[in-house]
C-alpha cells in the first residue's frame, strides 16, 4: 500500500518539477501575479479609497468583504459542527484514565496566569484595533482572545473557563459577530449603495467617504474577532473534554 501510493505521489512531483521551469524568477516584478492590474490598483488606490495604511486589512475587509464574510461563516459552521458531533458522545465512558490522578491546580502556574491573562486580552484588543496601521486585524485579535481563555482552561480546569465564557454565550457571541458583519453590509445597502459598500455610511456619520470605509472596516473586523475568538474556544473546550464540557485535560 505504501509503495503503491508512492506512484501517484512521484508522478505528481515529476509533473510539478517539470512545470517548475516556467515559474517566474524569484521576486520577478513582471510575474503574472505582480503585473496584474488588480494588485497594482489595490496598492495605488487603497490610501485614496479607504485611508487605511495597511493594504492587507483594507483588501481583506473592504475590497474582498464578501470573501471574508463567508470565511467567517465557515468558521462558525465548523464550531457548531464540532459541538454537534461531540455532544453527548461520551456518556457512560470513564471520565479519567486509570493512570491519571486528581490534582489541585498548581499555585505558581495559576498566579502567573492570573497576571498574564489581562495583558493577553489587552494585547488582543490592541491587535484588533490597530490592524489598520500595523499587522493584525480581526482574525489575529480574535485568536489571541480565544487563546487567553484556553490558557485559563489549561492552568485551572475547563469549568473555571466555562464559568466565564459558557458554551451558549460562545455561540451567541459568534453569531453576533456575523450579524455585526452582515448588519454593516445591510446598512450600507439600505443607504442606497450595494451590499458591503461602506462608503454610503457617510450619509449617517459625519465623516468623509474614505473615513466611512475606514471606520466600517473597524466594525467588520470586530465582528470577525467576536466569531473567531468564541469559536476557537469552543473548538478547544469540546476537543479537550470529548464534548463533556467539564474537567478538560
Amino acid at each position: 500500500m505504501k509503495l503503491f501510493s508512492l506512484i501517484p505521489v512521484l508522478a505528481i512531483g515529476a509533473l510539478l518539477l517539470w512545470a517548475g521551469q516556467d515559474f517566474p524568477k524569484w521576486g520577478d516584478l513582471a510575474s503574472p501575479a505582480s503585473k496584474s492590474s488588480v494588485s497594482s490598483h489595490f496598492i495605488a488606490k487603497t490610501g485614496v479609497d479607504t485611508e487605511v495604511p495597511n493594504m492587507v486589512t483594507a483588501v481583506l475587509a473592504d475590497y474582498r468583504g464578501f470573501d471574508t464574510m463567508f470565511e467567517t461563516v465557515v468558521v462558525f459552521i465548523a464550531g457548531t459542527a464540532v459541538i454537534a458531533i461531540l455532544r453527548g458522545s461520551s456518556i457512560g465512558r470513564p471520565r479519567r484514565k486509570d493512570h491519571e490522578v486528581e490534582a489541585e491546580p498548581d499555585l505558581i502556574v495559576t498566579n502567573t496566569v492570573r497576571l498574564i491573562v489581562p495583558v493577553i486580552q489587552i494585547f488582543a484588543f490592541y491587535v484588533l484595533a490597530h490592524g489598520h496601521v500595523s499587522p493584525g486585524g480581526g482574525f489575529q485579535g480574535g485568536v489571541l482572545m480565544g487563546a487567553s481563555f484556553i490558557l485559563i482552561a489549561l492552568s485551572w480546569d475547563l469549568e473555571k473557563a466555562m464559568a466565564r465564557f459558557p458554551i451558549e454565550r460562545c455561540l451567541f457571541v459568534a453569531a453576533m459577530g456575523i450579524v455585526l458583519y452582515g448588519g454593516i453590509g445591510l446598512l450600507s445597502m439600505l443607504l442606497g449603495g450595494e451590499f458591503l459598500d461602506y462608503a454610503e455610511l457617510e450619509k449617517i456619520f459625519p465623516v468623509s467617504r474614505g473615513m466611512a470605509r475606514y471606520y466600517a472596516i473597524l466594525g467588520v473586523e470586530i465582528g470577525v474577532g467576536f466569531t473567531v475568538a468564541s469559536i476557537m474556544f469552543v473548538l478547544y473546550a469540546n476537543l479537550a473534554s470529548e464534548g463533556r464540557l467539564k474537567e478538560g485535560l
Partner: peptide
C-alpha cells in the same frame, strides 16, 4: 507575492 527590493504591504 514577493517582489525584489519591495517592502511589506503597509504604506
Amino acid at each position: 507575492a514577493v517582489k525584489k527590493d519591495a517592502t511589506i504591504p503597509i504604506y
